[in-house]
Design a protein around this nucleic acid. Structure first.
Length: 174
DNA sequence: GCCAACGTTGGC
DNA sequence: GCCAACGTTGGC
């Protein structure tokens, strides 16, 4: 079976609820990406997003909105338990535990962008004009990217290699 | 199945 | 704070 090509995504997050710094502070710089409550995004998690895929971490509703970091998908999508938590803001009483409606996935921070890329900078690049995030009214929280878009965003963001910078590297190795 | 009303997202 | 765009709901 041929290996599946690595794919690339943009994940939106409102830093008022969970931002890049929060991800860096998580154990293993990894968190379960929950709260997706949109069928199109859910279908991407279920059908397209795979372990090892690249993720642009995007701050929405911030000033300015911007791509601020890189992450990678860890493991496969799995049931989002918050849909069944009584009183949770993401509870979905209509979801059947025998056939859960909503999924989440683990993501691990890879590196901060040396130059965070504001939305305006993305819009200024003709080669990025097809990215969903620059489209007016686009609300999808998990968006596919082409390999070319991924590479260009990394170049514009000053990423030379997808590695944690020395000050971000986890301790306790070597 | 249509579509108006509504709630939410998210840039500005 | 405003409001355009969008997705969902629910009456019919």
């Amino acid at each position: 079976m041929p290996a599946r090509a690595r794919r690339h995504w943009l994940f939106k997050s409102d830093p008022g609820s969970f931002g890049w710094e929060d991800l860096l502070a998580c154990p293993g710089r990894t968190t379960f990406w929950d709260g997706v409550r949109n069928y199109q995004a859910r279908n991407l998690l279920r059908d397209e997003v795979r372990a090892g895929d690249g993720v642009l971490f995007y701050h929405s509703s911030s000033d300015p909105p911007a791509v601020v970091g890189l992450a990678e998908v860890v493991g496969e999508a799995r049931t989002d338990p918050t849909q069944f938590e009584r009183g949770h803001e993401h509870e979905d009483p209509g979801s059947d535990p025998a056939a859960p409606r909503w999924l989440g996935v683990d993501v691990r921070a890879t590196c901060s962008l040396p130059r965070p890329l504001p939305l305006a900078a993305l819009k200024a690049e003709p080669a990025l004009s097809r990215m969903l995030v620059v489209q007016r009214g686009q609300r999808l929280s998990i968006q596919p990217l082409t390999p070319e878009e991924w590479a260009l965003v990394l170049r514009l963001g000053g990423v030379e290699a997808e590695m944690p910078s020395p000050e971000e590297r986890p301790r306790g190795r070597r």
